[in-house]
Design a protein around this nucleic acid. Structure first.
Length: 473
DNA sequence: AGAGATTTAGC
DNA sequence: CTAAATCTC
């Protein structure tokens, strides 16, 4: 009775940040229906949905290509359309006669507003419309404290969340995907011009392999190698000891359930595995906070910060973005970001603290820069982490914790390995002054003297000024 | 997931 | 005396 199945129409799978075929419940559900499946990615222009930054667009380009190749192996392909999502869906439904639309959920307000409106409207029109969870270990609304409220502190949140994770399940990729006989036209990926207009900028991004295969390889590499020394080495930017899964997780090339299960089965000490998994916990926490406090990217989580006397200093901001602050660890981080679309986590905290506390520049300006330049730019994590550093966020670092960029450098990059990699003009500076080259100008090689400038603010002065600003609240 | 000053424990 | 623990911002 094959024709019988066709009578029910095709199912449309709307891909978003779930660019994978394994552990993808919407895709799996469509495949299991036995009906033809239309795989659609919409370059969404719905007003209010934050446009991706330049580094994200670079990544998206490769990830979509990779997903299309995976789908072709299953006998299907990825259809691309650009426009306002609701209108694009209407058009594709009309062109294909599909009778069902499935997707995996997103959790920011612009997306949930859009998706709820679409779901209500499509269901009223008789379209079978369902959403699934591909992106999080637990749904944000599932984890509540004793008073029925969402947690605002990470440790009790993660403790409660872990109790929900007794039967984490991963679904295999479908073996095949029926396709529609006559698929309406797709736009061409190249026409979207997702690569940066300055091609030189992304030259150094080749350390990444966007796409599902690259994500799985990265996870495997990490779990069979550096996770063993994770607790000790994860804070050392000169050592490659972190997983670097963040962009893959953001685009959903791999899901947190896959990471969770693989980590639990890895041959490594339990303590190290748990430390790594608690980083997944922060990802869950940030998404839950964003879901319950949708203004997180724009407004202080703690409203008492609303009166903070931020400085307007374009020259200082520019120096920060270019890695020209005169503090080697800060400059190394900002240059790693520019060169690779990524920055080591420890250094993210240092550069963010520097922008907010040494320069007194609003965390939202830093958040916007990261949004544009990070390949792992993620609304929940980016906003949550910037507010964490600023002291204005949920379970944030107290404002008066002001990182000393010299001490942080000496503690976490003691031999200057990281600094020398990203600030080559300091290559010949001896270890004992690599994080404070201005203190012994006579000992500096000519290149360092000529090319590396003095700090744009003096640490003790900036620290005192930041504390004063904080106390003015 | 600070920094810096001060106190205390252990020798 | 030193290093760890404690306190304060």
């Amino acid at each position: 009775m094959p024709n019988d199945r066709d009578d029910h129409g095709a199912i449309l799978v709307w891909f978003r940040n779930d660019l994978r075929i394994a552990d993808n419940p919407a895709l799996r559900h469509a495949a299991d229906s036995g009906r033809p499946v239309i795989c659609l990615y919409i370059f969404d222009e719905t007003p209010g949905v934050r446009p991706m930054g330049a580094a994200s667009l670079w990544w998206l380009d490769k990830s979509l290509k990779s997903l299309d190749e995976s789908l072709e192996k299953l006998g299907n392909k990825l259809m691309l359309r650009r426009g306002v999502a609701a209108e694009v869906l209407d058009e594709v439904l009309r062109q294909t006669g599909a009778t069902g639309v499935l997707w995996n959920r997103l959790y920011d307000k612009a997306s949930t507003d859009r998706d709820m409106a679409i779901k209500t409207r499509l269901r009223a029109a008789g379209i079978d419309c369902q959403s699934f969870n591909a992106s999080l270990l637990t749904e944000p609304w599932e984890i509540k404290n004793g008073a029925g409220q969402p947690y605002k502190v990470f440790t009790p949140y993660w403790q409660a969340a872990r109790e929900h994770l007794t039967d984490v399940v991963v679904e295999d990729a479908p073996k095949s995907l029926r396709s529609l006989g006559h698929l309406p036209s797709s736009e061409r990926l190249a026409d979207w011009r997702l690569n940066p207009t300055k091609p030189d900028w992304s030259k150094g991004f080749d350390l990444w392999t966007p796409g599902e295969a690259g994500a799985l390889a990265r996870l495997d590499d990490f779990l069979s190698g550096s996770v063993s020394g994770y607790g000790e080495k994860r804070d050392l930017p000169g050592v490659e000891a972190t997983s670097r899964l963040s962009p893959h997780l953001h685009f959903g090339e791999i899901g947190p359930r896959q990471v969770w299960l693989a980590a639990r089965e890895a041959q490594a000490p339990r303590g190290e595995i748990d430390k790594f998994l608690s980083e997944l916990g922060w990802r869950e926490f940030n998404h839950a906070i964003l879901f319950h406090w949708p203004d997180l990217p724009a407004r202080n989580f703690k409203p008492e910060f609303d009166g903070f006397p931020w400085a307007r200093d374009d020259a200082a901001f520019k120096a920060w973005t270019r890695g020209q602050t005169g503090y080697p660890i800060v400059d190394a981080g900002m240059r790693e970001l520019w060169a690779t679309g990524f920055m080591h986590n420890r250094v993210r905290m240092i550069v963010a603290s520097f922008l907010i506390k040494h320069l007194l520049i609003d965390w939202r300006e830093g958040e916007a820069w990261f949004w544009d330049t990070l390949v792992d730019a993620d609304l929940a994590n980016n906003a949550g982490n910037w507010q964490w550093v600023a002291g204005s966020g949920a379970d944030a670092s107290p404002y008066f914790r002001i990182f000393n960029p010299i001490a942080q450098g000496e503690k976490f990059d003691p031999r200057g390995t990281y600094v020398r990699r990203w600030v080559p003009e300091l290559a010949g500076v001896p270890d004992d002054v690599i994080h404070k080259p201005w203190t012994r100008p006579l000992h500096l090689p000519a290149a360092a003297k000529r090319l590396y400038s003095r700090p744009i603010v003096e640490h003790d002065h900036a620290r005192a000024r930041a504390l004063e600003a904080y106390h003015s609240l």
